[in-house]
Design a protein around this nucleic acid. Structure first.
Length: 964
RNA sequence: GCUGGAGUGGUGAAAUGGUAGACACGCCUGCCUUAGGAGCAGGUCCCUUCGGGGGUGGAGGUUCGAGUCCUCUCUCCAGCACCA
């Protein structure tokens, strides 16, 4: 027979009315008794309808809000709308709706929907970023940043989304595509507004370290900031036409280019210089000087060609391209030698100085370019290898340097190489040998091969000189050895062989290996390098080693000499970041107007604060144009002239919506204030946000922007903390039933309203909570069966009320409750709602198995369930005669229980073989007695001798037995 | 390529270094009948001669004991990527 099921519609309605009547979710921000707890979730864009993802975001965070509140915290759990943005404007373009009206209607609908979720949001703190009351302060804060040089206008190459008809910030370009609409972005050269986030790069980086965030989030931000340390070096420019060498710039400097490099130690190997095609020096030379470049036509053509390409197209063609700047040469500041200058699109204008010194011998990209353009390759670092393991050098002992030959013998007959497997040591490599005084390397190599292998007919092959250094401990000699190897290449003419002495054959095993087998075969530290460079006439080595061809620095360790070399060439140490300044202007209507006007001379002026909010005009034409829609407003132009005077003009761009969301959590604290953006004493009390929950897509967008914004405000003494958020949790994603991302395109969008109507709001939120751990981002397909199952569980909780009788806790109930409360508390605290709910289920099953249930334990169950199933818990609480609301009841304290027995596992040789029941504090003897009494264990004990007993009371008994 | 993270049943997933697979979904068997998106009971990692034996991507190692720690390796996911 079907059991009675609760009427979720009635229960939800009455519970929500009760909460409203009792006004239990309005937070008194000034309360001085309870500890403040600021719980934040990312406020939504009012797209119109709440989807299941919103439930996942809001209802699950609400679990935690209710939990903390019941724990006696003064919880601030606000919500608002990030209501500026493109969809409103697109709706306006499509069907003529006023973006403000459209947005307001959506917000109205969403507020109602959020209420049906039964969230405990404090709506009295609501912020709406598109309201003039809010954006007045966005403008005011912008002005403050402008005053301190953190908001500025500059002409720069920027990313342009042709579909959204606006520029984008770097963070909003993903794989060369617009983050919003997936269109390929184009590059434009425009004057735009930027925020000086790069000034904060170092602090954004170092302040990340102590934050209690997951490593992957911190790491993504670190990668985005992209710090690299190196040097700025100057390369003077010489002109073929000597008269031009007299040329000086405005500051009186002769022609020169600065390069940024992380490897100033390789400067002696810089055999050419490459500038980005957009490099200002090139542009300048083309503009001013006539015929600076004798191949000017070609240069211009290349610049034009690269300008046309999107970033993507530039990347797609990995083959290096470029053009030599004929008519000029650069001077290598280390060698004083003259080197050619190129422009090439593999050098990015926006990174470093937009110019590089090319060291083909030690940089892969430069190497590729040099190969293609037949440029000289000059090696300035000899590879250095240090053995590890057996052969690792003994520390503190000096190295004995020895000139040696490293001998490559190729047998063309079967395409193999002569290798040496040392019989006396775990060492496999090539044959090598010391070079005696007055001995030629090749002679030495021939002698060595003859002695050790017997091969007599070797033809010497000429190759560019190649050396490596190997540092190891020479076991047989008992010394640290530094072998300075010179490579000698031979080809075997025939396999004629003389006998080898017994002594030699006791040491070496001769092995022939093909090129492919070598890397696996070699165990010597230089092995991988040899395997890679056996045939290459030229090679590139981009790691560490000893300097060569570097004048006074020859023989020094490249890392150690780095600083000295920078000084030697008169360079400076610099740190570079990948992070670019944040481009905040948007050529769109539905955004916060930038509070700036221009005088008749075109000079920029901030709009004085008495004119804020600087409101959006409403008389605009939304038909798509490359111009900002605000430029079509007559009212705006008239307003500017009325206030500032004739000939003054407005700023037509609006702000990126990420500016609005960079400070909304400050406004929640004082959302109605007409005289200030927030309240200092409340900021002091409530910041930083204790826990912030949101999506992982914002790691290098919103989260980075708001950290920057906050730090800037901190420096202006407008906020009391250097970081806005303490804990941050990235939520996962709910997929369609087909496991794909929910999208109208796939027709797999789950409508939460339907499911809620059928199974109730509590069942839906609990199912979402049960689906997986909320403290890590995963993706979960929506399964209706899951919601059905959760409803069944809730029905069981409801049915359990029929068994409730007046009375005290039974001993069993006490034990169950203690266990459940401990588990649920711990798991909820860590956002592990899935296992917390499994705790509820176990607890309920234990109560079901008893004849009756005491009212006390049932009420306790309801408190434990209240954050998860707020409506049902409230209903049953009321029915049980609980006082007030279950949501203002206290969360169960930890209950100490003394169990008289525990079950522990018994392992034999680490494998579980049985279990025994013991007193928790039983002695080892008692444990052994119990173990012997166990049938299986007893038998095993008879099979062998007990060597060792590991007994951890209350946990484990492990017996180590040797079988006889 | 570089940097992080993760690999456990048919599925979502559990396991402070101490009984691997909790809790669910699905599936199987039986019962029940107000036929319901029902309820109840039992089963569900693999092998088994029913005594047991094996098992957390793979190979080693540390430990009385490893899903968990270390080394190597493979695969997948994410971020970055011609960043000098």
């Amino acid at each position: 027979m079907a059991k009675e099921r609760f009427d979720h519609v009635a229960i939800e309605k009455s519970a929500q009315e009760k909460w409203e009547a009792l006004d239990i979710y309005t937070t008194d921000l000034t309360d001085s008794e309870k500890e403040p707890y600021y719980l934040l979730f990312e406020f939504p864009y009012p797209s119109g309808d709440l989807h299941i993802g919103h439930w996942f975001a809001f209802a699950l965070t609400d679990i935690f809000a209710r939990f903390k509140r019941m724990q006696g915290k003064n919880v601030l759990f606000p919500m608002g709308f990030d209501s500026f943005g493109l969809p409103a404007e697109n709706a306006a373009i499509k069907n003529g709706a006023d973006p403000a009206v459209w947005t307001n209607a959506n917000m109205e609908r969403m507020r109602a929907q959020v209420k049906t979720m039964g969230t405990s949001v404090d709506w009295s703190k609501e912020v709406v970023t598109s309201s003039p009351e809010y954006y007045k302060w966005t403008q005011w804060l912008f002005s403050k940043l402008y005053d301190h040089g953190l908001a500025y206008r500059k002409e720069a190459a920027v990313k342009w989304c042709p579909k959204d008809q606006t520029v984008l910030a770097n963070e909003q370009v993903i794989d060369g595509k617009c983050e919003r609409c997936d269109s390929e972005v184009e590059e434009k050269f425009l004057t735009q507004w930027f925020m000086g986030i790069t000034k904060y790069a170092e602090r954004l980086l170092t302040d990340l370290d102590p934050l209690p965030w997951r490593e992957e989030m911190k790491d993504a931000q670190r990668a985005w900031i992209g710090k690299s340390e190196g040097a700025k070096l100057t390369f003077p420019i010489l002109f073929a036409d000597e008269a031009k060498n007299e040329w000086r710039d405005e500051e009186g400097n002769p022609a020169q280019v600065a390069v940024f490099t992380t490897r100033p130690d390789t400067v002696f190997g810089a055999t050419y210089v490459v500038l980005a095609p957009e490099h200002p020096w090139v542009t300048g030379a083309l503009e001013h000087g006539t015929d600076v470049f004798s191949n000017e036509k070609e240069v211009r053509a290349y610049i034009q060609e690269t300008a046309k390409k999107t970033e993507r197209e530039r990347l797609e063609n990995k083959e290096k391209t470029g053009v030599k700047l004929e008519g000029i040469r650069a001077v290598n500041p280390a060698t004083k030698g003259e080197v050619p200058v190129y422009i090439a699109d593999y050098v990015l204008a926006s990174y470093g100085t937009g110019a590089v010194m090319a060291v083909p011998a030690h940089d892969e990209r430069d190497f590729d370019f040099a190969q293609k353009f037949k440029l000289p390759i000059r090696h300035v670092i000899e590879p250095k290898f240090v053995a590890d393991g057996d052969q690792a050098p003994i520390s503190g002992q000096d190295f004995e340097r020895r000139e040696s030959a490293c001998i490559v013998v190729y047998n063309p007959k079967d395409k193999t190489y002569l290798c040496n497997n040392w019989k006396t040591a775990l060492m496999r490599g090539l044959f090598t040998g010391g070079i005696d005084e007055n001995e030629d390397v090749v002679e030495a190599a021939r002698r060595e091969i003859l002695e050790e292998t017997g091969y007599t007919n070797l033809r010497h092959i000429e190759r560019p000189e190649l050396h490596v250094n190997t540092f190891f401990f020479h076991r047989m000699k008992g010394v640290n050895r530094w072998s300075h190897f010179t490579f000698v290449f031979f080809e075997l003419e025939n396999e004629d062989c003389l006998p080898v002495t017994d002594e030699e054959s006791a040491l070496h095993e001769i092995v022939w290996k093909s090129a492919e087998e070598l890397d696996d075969f070699f165990t010597v530290p230089e092995g991988w390098f040899i395997a890679k460079h056996l045939d290459a006439a030229e090679y590139c080595y981009s790691y560490d080693g000893l300097l060569m061809n570097s004048g006074q620095f020859d023989g020094k360790d490249n890392r150690e000499a780095m600083s000295e070399i920078i000084d030697f060439v008169g360079g400076e140490h610099v740190t570079n970041y990948r992070l670019r300044d944040w481009l905040v202007s948007r050529q769109r209507y539905w955004g916060c107007p930038i509070p700036v006007v221009y005088d008749p001379e075109g000079a920029l002026h901030l709009i004085p604060s008495e004119h804020l909010p600087w409101t959006l005009p409403t008389d605009v034409d939304f038909s798509l144009s490359s111009e900002s829609p605000l430029a079509t407003s007559k009212e705006l132009k008239e307003r500017v002239e009325r206030i500032f005077g004739e000939g003054w003009t407005p700023e037509y761009d609006t702000l990126d919506t990420f500016v609005d969301s960079s400070w909304y959590f400050l406004r929640y604290l004082d959302s109605k204030d007409e005289n200030d953006f927030s309240d200092q004493s409340l900021l002091k009390k409530w910041l930083p946000v204790n826990r912030y929950s949101g999506g992982s897509e914002h790691t290098t967008m919103h989260l980075l922007y708001s950290r920057f914004f906050h730090k800037a405000l901190y420096d202006l003494a407008l906020v009391p903390t250097p970081e806005p958020f303490n804990e941050r949790f990235n939520r996962g994603l709910i997929l369609g039933t087909d496991g794909q991302k929910m999208s109208k395109r796939w027709g797999n969008v789950v409508n939460p309203d339907e499911v809620v109507a059928k199974f109730g709001s509590d069942a839906v939120r609990m199912y979402l909570a049960f689906i997986g751990p909320y403290n890590e981002p995963g993706s979960y397909p929506w399964k209706l069966d899951g919601a059905v199952a959760m409803r069944k569980f809730l029905d069981r909780v409801y049915q359990l009320s029929e068994k409730v009788s007046e009375g005290e806790l039974s001993e069993n109930e006490r034990t169950s409750l203690a266990k459940a409360a401990k588990k649920i508390t711990g798991d909820t605290e860590r956002f592990k709602f899935n296992t917390a709910i499994s705790g509820h289920m176990v607890f309920v099953r234990e109560l079901e198995s008893a004849e009756t249930v005491s009212k006390e334990v049932y009420l306790a169950l309801l408190t434990l369930m209240a954050p998860f199933a707020p409506h049902l818990a409230e209903h049953l609480w009321e029915r049980m005669g609980g006082e007030g609301s279950v949501h203002t009841a206290s969360w169960p304290e930890e209950i100490a229980v003394e169990e008289d027995t525990v079950v522990i596992g018994v392992q034999v040789n680490g494998k579980r073989r049985g279990e025994i029941v013991l007193a928790p504090d039983a002695s080892e003897e008692e444990a052994m007695e119990a173990a012997k009494a166990n049938e299986t264990i007893g038998r095993l004990l008879h099979e062998g001798k007990v060597e060792k007993v590991v007994y951890v009371p209350g946990r484990i008994l492990n017996l180590v037995i040797t079988r006889s």
